[in-house]
């Protein structure tokens, strides 16, 4: 099997393995940061496929490399947005854990909507216009 292989096909297989590894891990793990990293690893796997395709011709193909650079910038965009969202969610959860004693239990219902209505972290109890 190894004899019929050339460099490009080898990297295409590595790319497929990395993509599948990242995708399966993304769907199975629950921790938010682990999922974000798994998503980014899947992105790297797909981009690895594109660069391996670009490297088939003697001078590596310019259009496919430009596509990969575009893909890289999109990857940093969605990873940045995901990181800020994780930070806000875990900031909110730190508050819930810290503020559990003084909050009435029924307010603690995890329903996304009721949570949003009172919306405010206790120590910032400004007038929440309703």
């Amino acid at each position: 099997m190894l004899t019929g292989l050339d460099t490009i096909t080898w990297y295409l297989m590595i790319a497929a393995a990395v993509t599948v590894f990242g995708m399966v891990r993304l769907l199975l793990v629950r921790d938010l940061l682990a999922r974000l990293i798994a998503l980014d690893v899947t992105g790297i796997g797909v981009l690895l496929t594109l660069v391996a395709l670009a490297a088939r011709s003697q001078a590596p193909d310019a259009v496919l490399q430009a596509l990969v650079i575009t893909g890289l910038v999109i990857a940093v965009a969605f990873t940045g947005l995901g990181a800020v969202l994780i930070r806000r969610i875990e900031g909110a959860r730190d508050d819930d854990d810290a503020a559990v004693p003084d909050r009435a239990p029924d307010e603690q219902t995890p329903g996304a909507d009721s949570e949003q209505d009172h919306g405010l972290s206790p120590h910032d109890q400004g007038g929440d216009p309703q």
Binding site: R30, D31, L32, L33, A34, E90, D96, D97
Partner: peptide, 8 residues
């Protein structure tokens, strides 16, 4: 350590 999510 991920609070609450019981992540890992």
């Amino acid at each position: 350590e991920p609070p609450g999510a019981g992540g890992m």
